[in-house]
Each structure stands twice: as structure tokens, then as C-alpha cells.
Design a protein around this nucleic acid. Structure first.
Length: 857
RNA sequence: GCCGGAAUGGCGGAAUUGGUAGACGCAGCGGACUCAAAAUCCGCCGCCCCUAAAGCGUGUGGGUUCGAGUCCCACUUCCGGCACCA
């Protein structure tokens, strides 16, 4: 072994620059398709280029990098690419604030953030970089859109949006604050406008059933998707009525057809034709309908508003009894869900129960439920449980399934109902009345209607020099963009000015990385090698929408003949927790809350280390602890990764973020913790220095040390495989502690142990491990070294420790020879516990092999 | 409101299937080195208690078990999502 002289001090800046140059010169991270090798496609969710990296990014990409480097050393052919989710609202907001076009702002941000990612030493193949605002990328959004449009999988219908009447513009949900526009303060209205939708519901059944074929996804995420798709079996029921002399039917869907005999009213959405009709002659109702149309579009808000209703004076006929039921308008009925109407069964539905009590409607009990035969106040959840029918005429005595079957059959015979499967999942509205996004490739022709832009004219390029002003989409004010000729008839036509939801961009970028730069196809044959993504990593906040849309897109692409044998884009999914930080504030003279950055706060502690007071360093003002929460500008508690990297180096930042918490947990930031990680890397350096000065020695390796190192390694490999990287980091610390304790640093166990340590640690802190590996003469490139595996011989032990319990309480330990049988273990356990046994009979002895003995007295 | 999670010392966390609760680290306390400080090294560190023994202890209240942080039931608080933030 040869070794080169080492510097006394650990100087991360030099080491990291040198390691990064080494990797760049060697092209270490370039991914090349090789059918002879097993591939591993590792992908972290690409970032929105908001300006600079935040801790969530650093965490996400460090987790991905640990996995990437580990699999590389395991011998797999690894692809880890990076790109930019570059379209979106923040660029428009920045443009308004700074009068800079979103394109320029975005490109500048990308350039800065790319340098940051490179400085962190991530093993990324930059040759595959993409930005969704590149016309070469979004061209294929448009291309696929036109294909789906021709198949009817993309179609136009109306959708509800938030409308700011002052700025005359559509607002995103986050731009509506307490029902008012964020810039104007005007009360927001609901407005129905034409939009394009993707028919994701056509894939509902497959998206649901295929979840069972995803063992590599967290159960939690699969359950959320399952509930979101929301398959329910029920019955579609028709209530006939007459309106303006015309015979019509009000259709409702219910999963509780067994309660139909208890229906006492129907409720419709404010937008329902019955409501509109009745409002014409009823000013009070018209006012109520108008009220319902204001306010929340968001389901979360809708679900919490007080349930209100008003009768329409229009009656429908009960399909089985012929009774007249009045139709109400309810503010809780959604037009976009089902038929926009529900039947009201007050006795067996909590919402209907409250509604009926409020408006004095009858509440007949028709199900014998676990709490009895009546439904006295207050509401009891048992009222909604399944039971046998009562007060239901010919259906009395039937159980849930029998009643549903019988009622569905009777309805079907009358042509007033049938069994139906309903989905909670709605089609995906992709139109956005915004500038900074991918133009929807449609031309509106007065003669031919909506005509998709022909392939030869794609992409429809977004002009990149506009600055939005908050009063609607600037594209709609730009004749040079929207004036065009109909591709079909050649007459003057108008180009669509809406752009696509940015979720469209991010629904297939993973496939594009696998075909980077392809000019004549959305994806090419290289995608067949790399897809699907073997390991996808990203925030739990994307558990439903992004992941579901991507699963839909992969199928839509499959059915276009692209990557035909792959339906699921992500084989394994790791959902990381958020990064949180402490916050502190003081209330100033005007009573306004002033947030003080945690780094500006000095904390006083008692003898035990408990916090007793906190003061601002600059002036000693007492500040209040504001609890732990997401890092945000408004709370002034963001930690800038760049400052951290400059102070301690990338390896310390990476180590701390891995060590502080398991990847799936939320991570609470602490500056003190960073110091501890830096200390560990300095200790590692100091040990390497000591080690490099050793005299080469042969002879017997220290058996105890080998046993310890290999036991730790065994556990660490298990933890690595289950993605619990924080304990892998702990394992590295433990190995260093063990090596440091060796009485003779020149013992052969030290060389072996240190070589294991460097390789185990290298995915987490690649720069320092790369440096030490070559400096100490272990080899030319640690990334080419094999992943360490424990030696079974080193794991063997002559004696085994047993925990001894008496009546389930731990009282001591006995050591027995490895060869001891059950009887011998029992005897030594009883002997060691004479003090507790003291002549009493031992009634039972439980022996857990290799672990524990419990004496039951 | 609905759906999905989480809760363990002063703090982050560990405990593979029910089997020594608190690994590893941070903070704190005591000591060594130093003119001093930083850095480094050594020791202590769940609560109760003068100490030891005993006892108590994994958000709360019940239960199952020889044995529960881990399983079951009921609850509390916090976090994520709810379809136009990404």
C-alpha cells in the first residue's frame, strides 16, 4: 500500500473541490445504457426553481444520492438525473414585483441552483438536464395532448374557478385569502368557464386495482390513493317530476339504497337546473342561490361551512311509494360530483339528520341499528350503521345487501334506477388562465370548432418576453399570439390562450430523462432500458395528485405505444418528511409580531439543559418561543443551506441531514446538531492521520474488535436496505469509536475496520471518503470499491448473554456457553436469581433462544 | 368536516418479528490540558431518592399477555392532503 502525506487539519473546501473535479474529469456519473448490466434508475422529485435551494431540497437530494452511490458500489448501472419544474405561479408573482419576464427570472434561478447542487457533490448525470419551460420539452406535452384530444381522452367542458371581479382575473386557491382576492381584497366569486379536461376517470378502475401490484410503495400512500379514487357501489335512483309541463327525472346516487323508504326530501346544488328554474319566481331563493355561488371553491372550506338549505316549492315523486318529496337547494351539494343532487334520509345520515332537525323535516327510522329502533337526539353514529329494514313495507326484515338488491330490482323494473359503480375521482381540469405555462395546442375556428394544432406546427411556442400585470393572461392581449388560421379550413381563427396545469409537465419528466434530447419522439428506445424508475423519492405532500397524475400519464403514453410494456412509472417510492425549524417572536409597541431569526437568539438553560429564557442577541430583548414549524419567510426561521455549506462544507451538511432523522420523519433543524456532525468528520480525519502514521503490522487481528465492527456492519447493511439512513450514520460513528478504542492502532483489525468505515460512510459524505481512500492507499477510486459485507466468522461468539427476568421484570444477566441447551440455560438463570426465588417454586420458565429467560413464580 | 400519518429523557432519535427502553449524537454538569480561551481528551447524565435497594417511566384512559414503546379498544394534541402552491 502506498500513501500520500496528509494535511493536519480537515479542510472540506479543498477536498470537496478536488473530489468534484475528479468525478467531472472521469465522467463518473454519466449513465450509459448497457443491456448486459442490471440498471437502477434513482430519481428525486425535480425542484421548482424558486431562487435558491432550501433544506427540503438538500434533504431530498441527499437521500437520493445515498441510494445512488450505494447501488453504484453494489455494481448496478445507475441513472440519477436532474431537471427543473420551471413553469408556475411564483415566476409570475416575481415578474409583477420586479418587472422582469418570468423566463429571465426562471433561467437565472436555474443557473444559481445548479451551481448549488454541484457544490453538494450529488452524483447526477447533468447531460440529461431538462427544464419544462424548454420548447423542446413542452412540445411533447402538446403532442400528447393532441393525441388524447383526438381519442376523446382530452375534452372541453365547463369548470368552476375563483374569479376576482376587480382584477378581472382567475385566482389560484392560494391567492384567495378568507374569501377575498389577495391583491384586491375583493370578495371572490365562483365562475363557470370552459376548460379542457383529461379523462383520468377512464383509467379509474386500473389506477385502483394496480395499487395492489406496487409492493414497493408505502401502504399509507396506496391507501390515500385508494380513498381518493373512491370506488363505491350503489344505486342510481330516479325521482320523476314535472317542470313547466315537461316530464323529467331527478337522478341521485346512493350507497344506501336500503334506506330509500326513509327518504323525506331531495337536495340539489345551487347550479342545478331545478334551482335555477325555481329561483326565477322566488326572489328569496334566488338570493340564497346567489349566496351559494359566492365563497369557497375549495372542498376543505366547503366541508366546514354551516349546512344550509332552502325549499324550492318543487316536488318529486318517490319512485317506490309515490309520495311527494320536496326538493331543497343545499349549499353542501356539489354540482361537480355525481348528478349534483342527493336524496335526504334524515334518520340514517348525519348530515341529513342535522338538516332535518334544523328545518323541521320528518325523520322516520327505517333501519334497525345497533342502538335500537329509534333515532332520538343527539345523533349517534350507530344510526348510520347497516341493519335490517323496518317501517319499509315489503322490505321489512331484509338485511343490507338483500334490501339493496330488492330495491334496485324494483327500481329497474320501473325504469327508475339501476346498480351503478361511482367514483370519487373527477376528471383532471388542466386549463389555466395564465401566461407562464405550456400553451394548449388548440385553434378555435368559427366554422370547424376546436381544432388541434397539426404536428408540423408544434410546438406552439410561448413568447418569453412578456411581463404579467395581475389583470389576466397577457397572451389573451397579444394578437400576434392568438391570431391564426384554421388548420382545417384556412380561415381566420383564434388560438387558445390558456396554458396547461404544471402538473402536466411533471407527469412524464421521468420518462424524458430516460430519452434525453430525443428530437423526433416524446421518448425513444432508451426509455425501455431505464423505465420504470426503480426508486422515486419526494415529499409526502405529493402522495396523491402528482403521483396519481403520473400513473395516469404513464398509462396514456403506454396506450399511445410509447414504452408499451410499462404501466407504473415508479416501482419503489420513498416519501420524505418535511424540514421544520424553531421560531421566536416578540411583540413590538404597535402590538405587531416581529419574528426573530433563531440564529439571533441566545437561549438560557437550567442545570439540566432545559430552556428557561430566550433573548435577542443584539439588544437582549426577551423573545417568545413560537414552536416548531415549516421554515418560512413569514416566520423568519429559514436556514440557508448555502451558508451552512460555506461554513462546514457539503459533507457536514449531508451527514447532519441524514443523521438527524429517518428519511420518512419530519426533521427538526438544529444548528447545534450540525456542529456535532462537523466534529465527527474532524475526528475521522484525526483518526486517519493517526492511522497513516502506523507501522505496517501483520499477525493476529483483534477478535473482539472484528466482532464489534462486523456486527455493526451487519446491522448497517440491514438499515441501508430498509432506508433507515440515520442509523447507518450512527453505525459509522460507532465503528470510529470502536477503532479509536483499539489498544494497538497498528493491529490488522484497524486497517480492515477503517476500510469498512470509509466505504459505509462514502454514500453520505463522498468527498472526505474519496480523499481518505486514496490518500491512505486503499485504492484509486472508492466508488469502484465493492460494498462491504460482514464476515460470518467474525460474527461468531463463544458465549451468549441472556437477560433474566422474574415475573416479567428484568433482574439481571447470565452468560452461557454457545453450546448450552435449554436445561442448562434454565439452571444458570435460576441460580443467578436465588435472591428473588428464595425457596419459592418456579412455576414456569420461558426461554427465548439467544435472548432472554423469564422465571414465573 | 373528510382521508392519511405522528407522539419515547432538556433535544434529535434507537430498540428487525411482543423479549435489557433510551444505542448514536446534541445540550448540560464535573475533570484534564492551557496564562486564558477555543479545540481536544476523560467521566457523569430518564424520574424519584442523601446514597443504595425498591419504586415509577415510551401523549391520556382501559384491555390482551409470563412479558407491551411494539398488539386491541376509546380519546387528546400536532403534522400532511382535500383536486388552481409546487
Amino acid at each position: 500500500m502506498s500513501s500520500t502525506p496528509m494535511q493536519e487539519q480537515y479542510q472540506p473546501a479543498d477536498i470537496e473541490r478536488a473530489a468534484q473535479s475528479f468525478w467531472a474529469a472521469k465522467g463518473s456519473f454519466r449513465a450509459v445504457e448497457d443491456p448486459a448490466r442490471q440498471k437502477f434508475y434513482c430519481l428525486s422529485m425535480f425542484p421548482y426553481p424558486s431562487g435558491k435551494l432550501h433544506m427540503g431540497h438538500v434533504r431530498n437530494y441527499t437521500i437520493g444520492d445515498v441510494l445512488t452511490r450505494h447501488h453504484r458500489m453494489k455494481g448496478l448501472n445507475v441513472l440519477q438525473p436532474m431537471g427543473w419544474d420551471a413553469f408556475g405561479l411564483p415566476a409570475e408573482n416575481a415578474a409583477m414585483a420586479n418587472k422582469v419576464p418570468p423566463a429571465k427570472w426562471t433561467r437565472d434561478n436555474i443557473a444559481y441552483m445548479k451551481r448549488q447542487l454541484q457544490g453538494l457533490g450529488f452524483a447526477l448525470d447533468w447531460e440529461r438536464e431538462l427544464a419544462t419551460c424548454d420548447a423542446s420539452y413542452y412540445k411533447w406535452n402538446q403532442w400528447l395532448f393532441t393525441r388524447l384530444f383526438r381519442k376523446g381522452l382530452a375534452y372541453k367542458k365547463t369548470g368552476v374557478v375563483n374569479w376576482d371581479p376587480v382584477d378581472q382575473t382567475v385566482l389560484a386557491n392560494e391567492q384567495v385569502i378568507e374569501g377575498r382576492g389577495w391583491r384586491t381584497g375583493a370578495v371572490v366569486e365562483k365562475r363557470e368557464i370552459p376548460m379542457y379536461f383529461f379523462r383520468i376517470t377512464a383509467y379509474a378502475e386500473e389506477l385502483l386495482s394496480a395499487l395492489d401490484g406496487l409492493p414497493g410503495w408505502p401502504e399509507q400512500v396506496k391507501l390515500m390513493q385508494k380513498n381518493w379514487i373512491g370506488r363505491s357501489e350503489g344505486v342510481k335512483i330516479g325521482f320523476p317530476y314535472e317542470l313547466a309541463g315537461e316530464k323529467r327525472t331527478l337522478w341521485v346516487f346512493t350507497t344506501r339504497a336500503d334506506t330509500l323508504m326513509g327518504a323525506t326530501f331531495c337536495a340539489v346544488a345551487a347550479e342545478h337546473p331545478i334551482a335555477t328554474h325555481a329561483a326565477k319566481t322566488n326572489p328569496e331563493l334566488a338570493a340564497f342561490v346567489e349566496e351559494c355561488k359566492h365563497g369557497a371553491v375549495m372542498e376543505a372550506e366547503l366541508a366546514q361551512i354551516e349546512k344550509k338549505g332552502m325549499p324550492t316549492g318543487i316536488f318529486v315523486t318517490h319512485p317506490l311509494t309515490g309520495a311527494k318529496l320536496e326538493v331543497w337547494v343545499g349549499n353542501y351539494v356539489l354540482m361537480g360530483y355525481g348528478e349534483g343532487a342527493v336524496m335526504g334520509v334524515p334518520a340514517h345520515d348525519e348530515r341529513d339528520y342535522a338538516f332535518a332537525h334544523k328545518y323541521g323535516l320528518a325523520i322516520p327510522c327505517v333501519i334497525r341499528h345497533p342502538a335500537g329502533d329509534g333515532v332520538p337526539l343527539p345523533w349517534n353514529p350507530a344510526y348510520a350503521e347497516h341493519g335490517t329494514c323496518m317501517n319499509s313495507g315489503k322490505y321489512d326484515g331484509l338485511d343490507f345487501q338483500q334490501a339493496v338488491d330488492a330495491i334496485a330490482a324494483d327500481l329497474q323494473a320501473k325504469g327508475l334506477g339501476e346498480k351503478q359503480v361511482q367514483w370519487r375521482l373527477r376528471d383532471w381540469g388542466i386549463s389555466r388562465q395564465r401566461y407562464w405555462g405550456c400553451p394548449i395546442p388548440i385553434i378555435h375556428c368559427p366554422a370547424c370548432g376546436d381544432v388541434p394544432v397539426p404536428d408540423a406546427e408544434l410546438p406552439v411556442v410561448l413568447p418569453d418576453n412578456l411581463v404579467p400585470d395581475g389583470t389576466g393572461n397577457p397572451l389573451a392581449k397579444l394578437p400576434s399570439f392568438y391570431e391564426c388560421k384554421c388548420p382545417s379550413c384556412g380561415r381566420p381563427a383564434r388560438r387558445e390562450t390558456d396554458t396547461m396545469d404544471t402538473f402536466v409537465d411533471s407527469s412524464w419528466y421521468f420518462a424524458r430523462f430516460a430519452s434525453a434530447g430525443s428530437t423526433d419522439a416524446m421518448v425513444d428506445e432508451r426509455a425501455r432500458y431505464w423505465m420504470a424508475v426503480d426508486q422515486y423519492i419526494g415529499g409526502i405532500e405529493h402522495a396523491i395528485l402528482h403521483l396519481l397524475y403520473s400513473r395516469f400519464f404513464q398509462r396514456a403514453m403506454r396506450d399511445e405505444g410509447l414504452i408499451p410494456d410499462i404501466a407504473e412509472p415508479f416501482t419503489n417510492l420513498l416519501t420524505q418528511g418535511m424540514v421544520l425549524a424553531e421560531s421566536y417572536h416578540l411583540d413590538n409597541r404597535e402590538g405587531r409580531r416581529e419574528w426573530v431569526h433563531p440564529s439571533e437568539v441566545d437561549v438560557e438553560r437550567d442545570a439540566r439543559g432545559r430552556i428557561t429564557a430566550a433573548r435577542r442577541r443584539s439588544d437582549g430583548a426577551e423573545v417568545t418561543y413560537g414552536g416548531i414549524g415549516t421554515m418560512s419567510k413569514s416566520k423568519n426561521n429559514g436556514v440557508d443551506p448555502q451558508a451552512l455549506i460555506e461554513k462546514y462544507g457539503a459533507d457536514t451538511a449531508r451527514f447532519f441531514i441524514i443523521f438527524a432523522s429517518p428519511p420518512t420523519h419530519t426533521l427538526e433543524w438544529s444548528d447545534e446538531g450540525v456542529e456535532g456532525s462537523y466534529r465527527f468528520l474532524r475526528r475521522l480525519w484525526a483518526y486517519a492521520l493517526k492511522y497513516s502514521g502506523r507501522r505496517p503490522q501483520s499477525g493476529q487481528a483483534d477478535r473482539a474488535a472484528r466482532h464489534e465492527v462486523h456486527s455493526i456492519l451487519k446491522q448497517a447493511n440491514y438499515d441501508m436496505q430498509r432506508h433507515q439512513f440515520n442509523t447507518v450514520a450512527s453505525a459509522c460513528m460507532k465503528i470510529l469509536n470502536a477503532l479509536d478504542r483499539l489498544p494497538d492502532p497498528a493491529n490488522p483489525a484497524a486497517a480492515e475496520g477503517f476500510s469498512i468505515l470509509l466505504r459505509l460512510l462514502s454514500p453520505i459524505t463522498p468527498h472526505v471518503c474519496h480523499h481518505l481512500w486514496t490518500a491512505l492507499g486503499f485504492g484509486p477510486d472508492i466508488m469502484q470499491a465493492p460494498w462491504p459485507e460482514p464476515d460470518p466468522a467474525a460474527l461468531e461468539q463463544d458465549e451468549i448473554e441472556y437477560v433474566v427476568q422474574v415475573n416479567g421484570k428484568t433482574r439481571g444477566i447470565v452468560r452461557v456457553p454457545k453450546s448450552a441447551d435449554r436445561k442448562a440455560i434454565e439452571v444458570s438463570a435460576v441460580q443467578s436469581m436465588q435472591k428473588y426465588v428464595a425457596g419459592q417454586a418456579v412455576r414456569k420458565v420461558i426461554v427465548v433462544p439467544g435472548r432472554l429467560v423469564n422465571l414465573v413464580l
